[in-house]
Amino acid sequence: MPVSHAEEGYVTADGRQIGGTLMELRNITLRFGGVVAIKDISFDIHDGEIRAIIGPNGAGKSSMLNVISGFYIPTEGDVYFKKVKRGPMKPYEVARLGIARTFQNIALFDGMSVLDNIMTGRLTMIKSGLLSQAIWYGAAAREEYQHREKVERIIDFLEIQNIRKTPVGRLPYGLKKRVELARALAAEPKLLLLDEPMAGMNVEEKEDMSRFILDLNDEFGTTICLIEHDMGVVMDLSDRVVVMDYGRKIGDGTPDEVRNNQDVIDAYLGVAHD
């Protein structure tokens, strides 16, 4: 099923203007030895949209996200970011391109405070050298306070002011998820990858998280690509959905298109063998 949207963007059902292609994946195949995790998948992510990747367990969604974030290098196929082909890169180089992510099982720095965790999101923007930092004077101090101000805005946005000095290890699960989102946001990413942002949350926490995702897409114009199992959340939040099953792409389009796609229904509900 070809993607019908024009290269230069489209208007969503709720009237938001979506920009041109931000990232394009062409014929991605990922193999681990004999196991084919992803098989010949192509899709694109437009500037400013919320793009979801869904699929049953083991479909290869997280592998796909790892390819996008540069953690896995695809066996075959190319990744284009801002229309430029991205060669094999180290994860920290990808971070400098403006791609940030959160993890399925929270990957925060447990020994550090919430504030320090979020400040790590801005590491790529810091220019002052070791000597300047050692005396805490001039450029180093100035940068520190500038970035702190930006981080405080994110803390306000995500409503975690009261825990900013708490060590992350002591926080409950839902808040950790939020801090992880804050850390990814602190990098001011062009593309934000969320790996199951609502996993293990109750309904209220899911509502909060959904609101944050919509707000940050709306206010900061961040492009978001997310993996999620909660169908209600996915269908409500996302502009376009990619459906994967056994490493293949079986559907791509708006939530309505995907919902009525026979392959997708078969993958989720099973097929009668006659």
Binding site: S69, F71, K90, P91, Y92, V94, A95, R96, A100, R101, F103, A107, L108, F109, D110, G111, M112, D116, T120, G121, L123, T124, R183, A187
Partner: peptide, 15 residues
């Protein structure tokens, strides 16, 4: 500290 606590996440955040 990022490297100490979780080196993979540190790398992805840009360390």
């Amino acid at each position: 500290m990022a490297i100490r606590d979780m080196d993979i996440a540190a790398e992805i955040i840009g360390v």
